[in-house]
Design a binder for these strands. Structure first.
Lengths: 220, 220
DNA sequence: CGTTGCTTTGAACTAGCTCAAGAATGGTGG
DNA sequence: CCACCATTCTTGAGCTAGTTCAAAGCAACG
C-alpha cells in the first residue's frame, strides 16, 4: 500500500480505521466528473478508466488506474473526471475529512501524495506527446510499452501482456477509432513485432523494434 | 509573486536573498530536457514555451508559461522538458538546495507548490482531451479561449488578445500543422467569431459561439 | 444453437497533410 | 529613407492517412 509507506507501523491502523471497502462490477461507475469530492480511493485489485466526455459523446480516456494507484488526490471540491471499472475491481475508500486531518498530522504522507501527483503529471505530459505527434502505429506501440512497464512496476504478470481493456478504450485513450487501433495491431503483428494469441493477450516478440516504432518514449 | 503569498512578510526577503535574476532573448533556451535540475524559475515577464522533441524533429509543446508561473517544480533530478523564451523574458532563479530547505522550514510554501502542480495536472488533462478528440477548428477555438482566460487570470490585457507565439508554436501545441492552424483561423474569421487585425492580435467577436465551437471546454 | 457484443477486415470517402507559391511583415544595410 | 532580404503567414491544389460505413468472424453466454 503505497501511501502507507509514509506512516509508522503503529499509525497504519489509523488509516485502516477510517477506511471502508468498495467493490465494483465491470463498467460500474465509481465517481462522475463534477461529483462533490467526498472520498479518496485506492485501487486494491482490478482496473479503472479515468475519462472525460464531450456533450456529443466523444470520450477521452486520461489514463488507466492499476492496483496501488490513487484516485481523487489532485482534485479540489469536485472530481475532475469520471472513474469507471474496466473489470471487476475492489477499492479502499478514505473520507477526505479524515484524510486531510491525517495529512496535517503526518507531513510525510502529504509528501507522498505530492510525489504521486507529480507522477500523474509526468504521465499526462507523455500522453500529450503521444496524442499530439505520434502516428497510429506509433501510438499503439507506445501504449503497449507503457502498459508493460507500468504492469511490471506494479508487480503484475507481463510476459504475455494482458490487455483487459477493450479496443474502444484503447482508441479513446490514444485519440483514434477502434478500426485504426485494430489495423495498427495487425500491422505490428504482420511485422513480427508482436503476437496476438487472442485479442486480449499480447506477446512482445521484438521489444527493441517496438521501441523504435514507438519513436522513443519513456519506457527504457 | 505567487509563492510569496505563503511566506510571512519578514521571510519574503529570505527568498529574495537566495534568488538571482535571469533574462532571455526571444528563442533563447533556458533549460533543456534532461539537464540536471539545479534551479527553479519563476517567470517575471515575457513568455516561455515548454516542449519535448522526438528524434526526428517532431515537437510537442506541453504549455506556455505566463508571468507568475513556475518552472521545474514538478521535476526530480532532471528537467522533463525544454523551456525556451517565446519573446524576451525575465525570470527569477532559485537554487533548489535553498528552495528545498526553505520548504522544509515553511510547510505552507510546500502546500502552495502542491497546488501549482495540481493546476498543471488539470491543464495537462484538458490538453489531452483537446489533442485527442477535438477537430482543428475546435482546437484553435479552445486555444483562444484558454489563452484569454489565463491572460485574464494573470491580469494581462485581453480585449484584443495578443498572440505573441508563432503559428508553428500553436500548431505544435495543438498537434496540427501550421497550414491547418492558419486555415482554422480563417474559418473562425469567416464565420464572424473573431477578427484578426493582424496575425498576432485576435479580437473575440462572439465569445458564446466560440465556446460552442470549442465543444465545451473549461473556460466558463 | 441462436443471441449478443467485440474484433477484424474491406471499400469508399474526406479531413488534414504535403508540397508549392504568393503575400505580408520586419529588420538590415546601403 | 528606402530597397532588400529573411521570416512568417496565408492560400491553393493534390494526395494520403485515417475515418466512416458496412459486413463478416468469433467468442461467450443463455
Amino acid at each position: 500500500m503505497a501511501i502507507c509507506d509514509a506512516l509508522e507501523d503503529q499509525n497504519v491502523d489509523r488509516l485502516e480505521r477510517i477506511m471502508t471497502a468498495r467493490s465494483l462490477q465491470a463498467n460500474e461507475i465509481l465517481v462522475e466528473e463534477g461529483d462533490p469530492r467526498q472520498k479518496v480511493f485506492s485501487l486494491a485489485s482490478g482496473m479503472l478508466r479515468l475519462y472525460s466526455d464531450l456533450p456529443d459523446g466523444r470520450r477521452q480516456i486520461a489514463g488507466f488506474l492499476l492496483p496501488g494507484d490513487y484516485l481523487g488526490l489532485a482534485d479540489d471540491d469536485t472530481y475532475s473526471q469520471t472513474a469507471e471499472a474496466v473489470i471487476p475491481s475492489t477499492l479502499c475508500a478514505f473520507p477526505i475529512r479524515d484524510m486531510d486531518a491525517l495529512m496535517e498530522e503526518f507531513p510525510r504522507l502529504k509528501d507522498r501524495l505530492h510525489v504521486m501527483t507529480r507522477t500523474a503529471l509526468k504521465q499526462a505530459r507523455n500522453s500529450q506527446m503521444v496524442l499530439g505527434r505520434l502516428a497510429p502505429v506509433e501510438k499503439v506501440a507506445s501504449f503497449l510499452l507503457m502498459l508493460s512497464a507500468r504492469l511490471e512496476e506494479h508487480g503484475q504478470s507481463t510476459d504475455p501482456l494482458p490487455l483487459v481493456m477493450t479496443r474502444t478504450d484503447i482508441a479513446d485513450y490514444l485519440g483514434l477509432t477502434i478500426e485504426t487501433v485494430s489495423r495498427s495491431f495487425t500491422k505490428l503483428r504482420m511485422q513480427g513485432l508482436i503476437r496476438l494469441p487472442d485479442s486480449h493477450l499480447v506477446e512482445i516478440v521484438n521489444r527493441r523494434a517496438l521501441i523504435a516504432v514507438a519513436g522513443l518514449d519513456l519506457p527504457a
